[in-house]
């Protein structure tokens, strides 16, 4: 099988690491060779962050090269736009419908681009999710990323039960229930 290349992009602090670890966990569970590349340190402080997940029979490099991504999971719209060119021609974007202004916009140095989703839809297969809204309904805004993961999971090869098992083993024990609910919402969306 060809190596599957997934990118998770967002704003530092949004929890891309948890999502990549769940993805890495399920691919490991399925017996694949897996590599995940994460961002720690300074870049995490509200900056643009990107995490790579690759799995297949044998994986060499831990990053996804430009033009090779199968799936782009974006926690924020501007970050989807920033990294979309990493996708293959028929690549899929799962995009959280959330806008977080970068400081360059708040200070008036730059403008937040308009019609991001429409622009992306011209070239790519885009699925839009209002994950924050769903998470608020569940009473825990931090699980919005698990809603997005649920949407991504519904497009992937692994069994739903296995996903839930990996989530149980990865998220903090106190948040297992709410994360599973969030996953269910995304999965059936």
């Amino acid at each position: 099988m060809n190596t599957i290349n997934i990118m998770i992009v967002g704003v530092g602090g949004q929890g891309t690491l948890l999502t990549s670890r769940i993805l890495g966990g399920i691919a490991t569970e399925a017996g694949y060779d897996v590599k995940i590349s994460e961002v720690h340190g300074m870049a995490q402080r509200g900056g643009s962050v990107v995490t790579y997940v690759r799995y297949g029979e044998s994986v060499a490099e831990p990053i996804v090269e430009e033009g090779y991504a199968d799936v782009l999971i974006a926690f924020e719209k501007l970050e989807a736009l920033r990294y979309a060119h990493f996708l293959k021609k028929d690549g899929v974007i799962i995009c959280n419908d959330q806008k977080i202004e970068p400081m360059t916009v708040s200070t008036g140095q730059a403008r937040y681009p308009e019609h991001i989703i429409e622009t992306l839809k011209e070239k790519y297969n885009v699925k839009v999710v209002d994950a924050m809204d769903e998470a608020k309904k569940l009473g825990n805004v931090r699980v919005f990323n698990t809603v997005i993961l649920g949407v991504a999971a519904s497009q992937m090869e692994f069994e739903k039960e296995t996903w839930m098992e990996v989530i149980r083993n990865t998220v903090p024990p106190k948040t297992v229930e709410v994360n599973l609910k969030a996953f269910e919402i995304g999965y059936t969306m």
Binding site: G46, R82, P102, V105
Partner: peptide, 18 residues
């Protein structure tokens, strides 16, 4: 020669104080 898509124009998002 890699036929790569040009990156979109996106305002920079440098790290900031929380």
């Amino acid at each position: 020669t890699l036929n790569l898509e040009a990156p979109a124009q996106a305002p920079a998002r440098p790290p900031i104080l929380c």
